[in-house]
Computed example of a mutant assay.
Amino acid sequence: MAGAAGDRGAADRRSSRRRADDFSGARRTGLLRLVWRAVARRRGDVRGARRALHSLPIEDCPFRRDLDTTMAEARSRVAGGLVDLDNLEDSYAGWTGEQLLAELERTRPASEDLVVCHGDLTLDNVLVDPRTGGLTGVIDVGRLGVADRWLDLAILQRELTEEPFAAFLAGYELTGPDQDKLAFYILLDEFF
Rank of each mutant, 00 (worst) to 15 (best):
L123W: 00
L88W: 10
R33L: 10
D90P: 12
H118S: 00
C61T: 00
A72N: 04
A110N: 05
L67A: 08
S111K: 11
S76C: 08
G44C: 08
I58F: 00
A5R: 05
V39H: 06
L100G: 15
G48W: 03
T122I: 02
R50V: 15
A79S: 07
R64E: 12
F23R: 05
D120H: 04
D84I: 01
V128A: 07
A72W: 01
D113M: 11
L100P: 15
V116L: 08
A10L: 07
R106S: 14
G9I: 09
R65N: 13
R8A: 13
V83D: 04
V39M: 10
G81D: 01
L123T: 07
D60T: 14
D45R: 05
R18I: 00
S91N: 09
R65D: 10
A38D: 07
W36F: 14
W36S: 10
R108F: 00
G94N: 02
R37D: 12
D90Y: 06
D120A: 11
R108M: 15
D124F: 01
V46T: 13
A110C: 06
G94Q: 02
E112R: 09
S24I: 02
L32F: 11
D7T: 04
A38W: 08
R42H: 13
G30S: 04
A5K: 00
A110R: 15
H118L: 01
Q99N: 00
Y92D: 14
D60I: 03
L127W: 03
T70A: 09
T69V: 13
G44T: 14
D21T: 06
D84T: 00
L100R: 12
V35E: 14
L53H: 10
F63Q: 05
L100F: 13
D7N: 06
D7P: 00
R41T: 09
R13M: 12
D84S: 03
L53W: 08
D84L: 03
H54D: 08
L56I: 11
G44M: 07
T122E: 04
A52H: 06
G44I: 08
A74N: 13
E98P: 04
L53C: 13
T107H: 12
D45Y: 02
V39P: 04
R64M: 02
G44P: 04
A52V: 03
T96G: 07
L82A: 06
R77H: 05
G119Q: 07
R47T: 15
Q99P: 01
R17H: 06
E98M: 00
R108E: 09
D21R: 11
L104Y: 14
V115K: 14
Y92T: 07
V35H: 12
L34M: 09
L32R: 11
V35W: 15
A26P: 01
D21L: 11
D60V: 09
R27T: 15
A102G: 04
A5P: 01
D12Y: 02
T107Y: 01
G97F: 01
T69D: 12
T96Q: 05
A20M: 04
T122G: 08
V46H: 09
A38V: 11
L53M: 15
A20Q: 10
S55E: 12
V116K: 02
G119R: 06
S76Y: 07
D120V: 05
R65P: 08
E89Q: 10
V78S: 04
N87G: 02
